[in-house]
């Protein structure tokens, strides 16, 4: 690994994970230490039971039906993006361990084909959603509401997705190669396997990881803390 690879796909990964995990924990701890509003801030109607409130919290957070009714286009983009991002994340877990039950069903070739199609679809959907958001924020009537943070996050996402899509569609390397690199990360001895080290694809991987690292490091200090905060604020909506 050269210094750039080490920075992005080696040591950078550990730094990003530590900052992300610590930062999110810090943010949650900060919120928990701030006293709750004594005033009731619920909206009506609201469920009468705790179970009902919990159910509504899940619906509001994961489906946001009210938002869909008033702004269907952006909500479709948001849901598609989040689902695709979740699918991509799950797909990346293959780097940690092969999905053996799926391989047993689909066979090695079938698994690779499935991963290629599902990963490719996720990558295209994420790219389309990010471009839509970028366009909406740049050319929309309310662009004056946007701040540099909004563009930074979109730029990082665009970088992650573009490089990810490059690895998926152009890279030409199979999962086993990336698994070897990932195994080295897990053993705290980051190194590229020979096939990756000798391929120009590693540049795409390095840039992909640079954007991922930066995104994870910035995450806890950004509006993206809605990833955990939205549960709390949506609960207030139907609180007692």
């Amino acid at each position: 690994m050269d210094w750039f690879s080490q920075l992005t796909s080696g040591i950078g990964v550990y730094v990003a994970l530590v900052v992300f995990t610590g930062g999110m924990a810090w943010r949650a701890w900060q919120w928990s230490r701030t006293p709750r509003s004594a005033v009731r801030l619920a909206l009506y109607p609201k469920p009468k039971t705790a179970a009902g409130r919990f159910g509504k919290l899940l619906v509001d957070t994961f489906a946001a039906p009210q938002s869909f009714r008033i702004a269907p286009a952006i909500m479709v983009a948001a849901v598609l993006f989040h689902v695709a991002a979740l699918a991509a994340f799950v797909g990346h877990l293959r780097l940690v361990h092969e999905f053996t039950p799926l391989v047993a069903v689909l066979g090695v070739e079938g698994m690779n084909t499935f991963a290629a199609w599902s990963g490719g679809a996720a990558g295209i959907i994420m790219l389309a959603a990010v471009l839509y958001w970028l366009g909406r924020r740049t050319f929309g009537a309310y662009k004056n509401l946007s701040v540099p943070e909004d563009y930074l996050l979109l730029a990082l996402l665009l970088g992650i997705v573009l490089m990810g899509d490059h690895l998926r569609f152009v890279g030409g390397l199979h999962a086993a190669t990336y698994q070897a690199w990932f195994a080295s990360l897990m053993q705290f001895r980051p190194a590229f396997p020979a096939e990756l080290a000798s391929s120009t694809t590693r540049y795409a991987l390095d840039w992909h990881m640079l954007f991922v690292d930066a995104f994870l490091i910035y995450f806890p200090f950004s509006k993206l803390t809605h990833a955990i905060g939205a549960f709390a604020t949506n609960l207030v909506r139907s609180s007692e």
Binding site: R27, Q30, W31, S32, T34, P35, R36, S37, A38, L41, S67, I70, A71, I74, M75, A78, G140, Y142, L145, S146, V147, D150, K223, T225, H226, G229, A230, A232, T233, V236
Partner: peptide
């Protein structure tokens, strides 16, 4: 400052869905 105010200030995505409301 209270927890709710802090969270409202921290997490708004400036998505502007509220504009039509």
């Amino acid at each position: 400052m209270n927890r709710q105010l802090q969270q409202y200030l921290d997490i708004c995505a400036r998505c502007s869905i509220c504009k039509d409301s």
